[in-house]
């Protein structure tokens, strides 16, 4: 049923630290690698070696420049995948029952055996988290690596989403955001974790930690005075050359 039932007691999701992300795209590749071989059909590429390559990805890293009113601009790398919204608009629009939000852990999934590829769920998602696979004709989205996190065939340290497991900067965190005492919930409250486009009322489970404020204190550099240029006006031969060339 694509109606959203009662809110689940467990809300698994990601916390993404925009202060720490270095924009290496390792999560993008790890995600594509794992998900093209596991849950559902492969994530296809079109014209992969041709002039206009494109493909299906469940996670993409944008980069933004933010210019404050005063001070220098800063670059923010911004990974974006499904936010597993509490009020997921993609689920209720689905006519076939393929899209659903799991009652036990809040993961939003697509049952590819029921998907007819109408694309309406991708229209309903404000975040661009769903992509229709051109080869398979069915909707693909982040599964929160549902086939890893409960997988007892994997070593325990691997039982987290591929993007989290691979992130070399530790910018991605996985856990239960409905549990106030979980590490991810504490991170969200300490760092002011935020929702994306809260005005649309989707109530995302995934949270983003904003970049920490830049230092604004006076720059202290004890060597700078020693490196100040000594001669303001050129003298000697260079001075003569400068004056002569000015005259020509």
């Amino acid at each position: 049923m694509t109606s959203l039932g009662t809110e689940s007691k467990v809300q698994l999701g990601l916390v993404i630290d925009l202060d720490t992300c270095v924009g290496c795209h390792a999560c993008v590749i790890a995600c594509k690698g794992w998900n093209t071989e596991n849950y559902g059909t492969a994530l296809s590429d079109m014209d992969a070696y041709g002039e206009k390559p494109s493909g299906t990805f469940l996670n993409r890293v944008h980069s933004y420049e933010v210019q404050p009113d005063t001070g220098a601009a800063q670059t923010v790398h911004f990974p974006k995948s499904c936010l597993h919204c509490t009020d997921a608009p993609c689920v209720t629009v689905c006519p076939t029952g393929a899209s659903y939000k799991r009652a036990e852990d809040g993961i939003v999934l697509v049952n590819e055996d029921a998907c007819m590829g109408c694309g309406l769920c991708a229209w309903a998602c404000p975040y661009g988290a769903r992509e229709l696979d051109k080869a398979a004709g069915v909707m693909k989205k982040c599964t929160l690596c549902v086939d890893r996190i409960y997988n007892e065939n994997l070593p325990e340290e691997d039982r987290e989403p591929a993007c989290v497991r691979t992130c070399p900067a530790g910018a991605r965190h996985f856990g239960d955001l409905a549990d106030e005492d979980s590490a991810v919930s504490k991170l969200v409250s300490e760092r002011g974790g935020m929702d994306l486009m809260p005005e649309l009322g989707t109530r995302p489970v995934n949270k983003y930690l904003p970049p920490r404020p830049k230092d604004t204190g006076e720059e202290i550099d004890i060597l700078a005075p020693l490196l100040a240029p000594v001669a303001t006006e050129a003298s000697g031969f260079l001075g003569w050359l400068d004056r002569t060339l000015e005259k020509i």
């Binding site: 925009l18 993008v28 206009k52 390559p53 494109s54 493909g55 299906t56 990805f57 993409r60 890293v61 944008h62 980069s63 933004y64 420049e65 933010v66 210019q67 404050p68 009113d69 601009a73 800063q74 670059t75 923010v76 911004f78 974006k80 991708a122 404000p126 992509e131 229709l132 051109k134 935020m194 929702d195 994306l196 486009m197 983003y208 904003p210 970049p211």
Partner: peptide, 22 residues
């Protein structure tokens, strides 16, 4: 959309992919 509007003016610096997508 990015949640970065509180810091300042946000501008796309680099898209996530060079080609197009769905």
């Amino acid at each position: 959309a990015t949640g970065l509007g509180d810091i300042g003016q946000v501008r796309m610096f680099e898209p996530p992919h060079t080609g197009t997508n769905y």
